[in-house]
Amino acid sequence: MYATQPLQPLLAKEFDISMTKASSFTAVIMLFLAISPIIYGYILESVKTKTVLKIALIILLITNFCLSLSNSYEMFLTIRTIEAIIIPAILTGAMTVLAKDKENTKLNMSIYVAATVFGGMIGRVFSGFIAEEFGWRVVFVSLSLALVVAFYFINKIEFKGDADLMKPNFKDISDILKDRRFSTIYALMFIVFFVFAGLLNILPFRIKELLPDTSETKIGLLYLGYGMGILISLTIHKIIKFFKKEIPTIFAGLFVFVLATLLFLNENGTILFLSVFVFCVGMFTIHTVSTRVANSLKVSQRGLTSGMYLSFYYIGGAVGSIIPSIIYSTFGWDTTIFMFIFLLLLICIFIFFSRGLFKDYN
């Protein structure tokens, strides 16, 4: 998903396209990630989860190899679009299987977040290094090889049954959205991931603006801070215990997230590098706690609620991957950062006045 992010300045030069068009390589996958989970939420009510995962991995393996052969912006974007349709099958399938273990749902989701964070960090860091040492096409060949390994393990593992939840309908979706607890969590993650995806998406261009000779390897290393998400997700129970409950923990995460966003106004490369670490601490505190809360609010239809969570999360990322790049190109870096701060303050106020909805978590 994120391997293209540190490569965007390089791909923009390779295909002779603008920053906004280069950002679409991430935006398109976010957009379909936002749309597809609901569909896969339906499929997983009646189709064997293991079958869905195996077919999706095979298609993703093929498309990544095809990306390595791309010679135009249009071809690259088309293949990324196909991947965007397939990836939600893997994410929603995995979340559905984990959610079936009712006694350990919260712990499972924490480990799930840690796994996705690790993948996101490795994808960003290693793609920059591989691109500089061997060329950007080798990045996608290496991803295909990694997917061969993933397929082997998925094929070997024995799932404890398949998704057996009730088949949802649009009334189910409407009922979930009418539940203000869900709509509040969904709104929170829309804004948070809009800011997170938006800032990290344009950060490579900012680094190139400040330090034109920065290599792809160094740009990739910017995302090492993403690894803080692993630490946060695996120790979130201790963090929540420190703040007593989930909602106060979310507020603490928002405070850190806002503070880190302000740090990106600095023009010092070292400070920007360190700011990513703080930025990720705030974001993944919010994300991990919100995932746990959203998946424990409703016992039935967890496949649907998980899919809807992902929809709001990734539509925020899709919009965040395009709008900030336009604002950055038109009005500059500082204006973009102040826009992020404004949105975060709005959601902080919204969550504050909605805290009474979460009596068991507050």
Rank of each mutant, 00 (worst) to 15 (best):
Y314M: 03
L265K: 13
S46L: 01
P168Y: 00
S329A: 14
P6E: 08
R137F: 04
I239P: 00
T78G: 07
V195Y: 04
S329F: 03
T20Q: 07
Y313A: 02
V97Q: 12
S325A: 15
R181K: 15
D164M: 07
F331V: 06
S183Q: 00
F350L: 10
S354C: 10
V289M: 07
T285S: 13
M1G: 12
K241A: 15
G123P: 06
R355V: 10
I55Q: 02
G225K: 10
T51G: 15
I232P: 04
M308W: 02
K167N: 12
M1D: 08
F273A: 05
E132I: 10
M339H: 00
A294Q: 00
L203I: 14
E158V: 11
F129E: 07
I157V: 14
Y223R: 03
V195F: 03
G161Q: 03
K359T: 14
Q5F: 06
I79W: 00
Y309Q: 09
S325R: 06
V195H: 06
V97T: 13
D16T: 14
Y40Q: 10
N266V: 12
F350G: 06
F352C: 05
S300Q: 12
T26Y: 09
Y223T: 09
G253T: 11
G307L: 03
I341H: 06
L200F: 10
I347A: 01
I62N: 05
D213Q: 12
E133K: 14
Y328Q: 09
K100W: 00
L67I: 14
F358V: 08
E14G: 07
